[in-house]
Design a protein around this nucleic acid. Structure first.
Length: 492
RNA sequence: UCCUCAGUAGCUCAAUGGUAGAGCAUUCGGCUGUUAACCGAAGGGUUGUAGGUUCGAGUCCUACCUGAGGAGCCA
């Protein structure tokens, strides 16, 4: 089996295998996806399975919109009057699940190329139309969020999760095609300070009867891991392990933040992608981020054209133009010092900031929005931030007052990527840890990476759901993940 | 966590401090193959919760709950 695996070679793989899996898919699914039925020639005998979105009745004919999540367009099933017993027809209601055997015929009506002329209908499970909450009319996102177990049947969420699936696939494909190794970093960690915010504690101690130390504090030596443990806020430090053995690696997994953040951009549980490259500096990192975003966007735009057109029509009518603009143009590279100068100039020309700008302070949302939405109108990569506002592991620049950090800012969303070149010099890293009050013994293995074969290396983190918001135009991050977790809310 | 706004029928929303309504959905009936179908009728309410002001509160006041937007924190 000689299948080339180098960059860009994936499409050159033999097609015999692909055909085999296609045949296998039919065996597995005992029917066809609606997406495939819509592409069949008239005359084909098929079996469709799915859920009824709506039903319309004429005098001699019933129309049933059937969907199975595979297509942005429903399958119109035509049931001639008298075909089914009364009881069966009565059970074909919005929300019910069906298997329909029949013949594909050219559709005389607009809206669909072909339709399915039913010959046999089996109702798997009825749905009481009086209590089924999904109507064929538009619903607010807030209402649909309350029925997260059913909202994936709606047009919008069906499209959202098809896009999410395609995005995840494109992300893996980009890294795999470029020789990156997928590494699964731990979700439970005993590193109690990774530079990010509040962590969820993981414990098996009985909270009503916690064993106490002589000082009266909880005695974690009795806990499951014999010390305090938390859910990870980032896989970066562990990814650095594998970057020092596989050169180019990436993580793709869930991440947890216990901050009491109530905004349309924050989740307590979200998915993050973190590539880490050895033998790489900040410029390599910045180029990877840009190439990655463009490649992934282009692939999803190619694979999910119909869904993105749906979002462009119903959610944000500038979406397709924005995405095309990103794919076709170079990102702006803007050192922090230059960004501050632009913002100060804007202030001098009469722009008023709620938070004043000066060198040494972090950029606020209003500043990021000004740069991405008004000055440049496309993604901006801000680099080389002041040392004091960034994490200890970021590499100190020669000027001694900035670090080799980068944030990729995009219009509307703000920061979509945060990354840096890492400090690979043992002595400098130790000094910075002291400066931030971190204990060396807690990071022994991390420092070891600098003792044994240290190399320049860099990486970044991308929030999957923020990327989804950018890609779909959806306004609230809770609507691009199946079961959102936010403060006070972990239903479903 | 702070600031602002909003909670009325299954959903989306009306209602000057004075008898709680519409559209959609649902049910029933009608309708030449419809496609957010159309036409007609019916059922559907402790106005988020608990107090208070008032002759009288969906409406005014207080507290709480829930949701949304903005900010902080961040991806």
């Amino acid at each position: 089996m000689a299948c080339p695996t180098g960059p860009g070679q994936a499409k050159a793989c033999p097609t015999k295998l692909t055909l085999f899996f296609e045949r296998l898919a039919h065996l597995i699914t005992n029917g066809e996806y609606i997406k495939d039925i819509l592409a069949r020639e008239p005359g084909a005998k098929v079996a469709a399975r799915g859920w009824v979105k709506t039903r319309r009745d004429g005098k001699g004919v019933h129309f049933v919109q059937l969907q199975d999540g595979s297509s942005a367009i429903d399958l119109q099933v035509v049931i001639l009057a008298g075909l089914l017993p009364e009881a069966v027809l009565a059970a074909v209601t919005t929300g019910s699940s069906l298997r329909v055997e029949g013949t594909v015929v050219a559709s005389p009506g607009p809206g669909q190329p072909v339709e399915l002329r039913a010959e046999a209908v089996e109702v798997y499970g009825p749905a009481d139309p009086a209590t089924y909450p999904l109507q064929k009319k538009g619903h607010t996102m807030e209402f649909l969020r309350e029925i997260a177990h059913l909202r994936s049947r709606s047009n919008t969420f069906s499209a959202v999760f098809r896009v999410r699936n395609a995005l995840c696939y494109a992300i893996h494909r980009f890294f795999q095609d470029n020789g990156f190794v997928y590494v699964q970093t731990p979700l439970i960690t005993t590193l109690d300070c990774e530079g990010a915010g509040q962590m969820f504690q993981v414990t098996t101690l009985d909270l009503a009867a916690t064993p106490k130390t002589p000082e009266g504090r909880p005695d974690f030596s009795h806990d499951f891991f014999a010390k305090p443990a938390h859910l990870t806020v980032s896989g970066q430090l562990e990814a650095e392990m594998f970057a020092h053995s596989f050169a180019n690696v990436y993580t793709f997994g869930p991440t947890f933040r216990a901050e009491n953040s109530n905004t349309p951009r924050h989740l307590a549980e979200f998915w993050m992608i973190e590539p880490e490259m050895a033998f790489a500096d900040l410029d390599d990192n910045r180029r990877l981020a840009e190439r990655f975003l463009k490649a992934v966007l282009a692939e999803v735009m190619d694979r999910c054209r119909a869904d993105l057109e749906f979002f462009n029509k119903r959610v944000d009518n500038t979406l397709l133009a924005t995405l095309a603009n990103v794919v076709e143009n170079d990102f702006v590279h803007l050192p922090y010092t230059e960004a501050v100068r632009i913002l100060e100039e804007a202030a001098a020309k009469g722009k008023t900031w709620e938070f004043p700008v000066s060198w040494g302070t972090d950029l606020q949302s209003e500043h990021e929005r000004h740069l991405t939405e008004e000055v440049f109108r496309k993604p901006v990569v801000v680099t080389d931030y002041p040392t004091q506002i960034k994490a200890f592991y970021m590499r100190l620049n020669d000027d001694g007052r900035t670090v080799a950090a980068m944030d990729v800012l995009v219009p509307r969303i703000g920061e979509i990527i945060g990354g840096s070149q890492r400090e690979e010099r043992l002595d400098v890293l130790r000094q910075r840890m002291v400066g931030q009050g971190l204990k060396e013994e807690d990071y022994a293995w991390y420092l070891d990476l600098r003792r044994f074969g240290s190399v320049p290396h860099a990486g970044f983190g991308l929030g999957l759901e923020r990327m989804m918001m950018y890609l779909t135009g959806m306004k609230n991050i809770r609507d691009v993940i199946p079961c959102p977790r936010t403060p006070g809310s972990a239903a479903f």
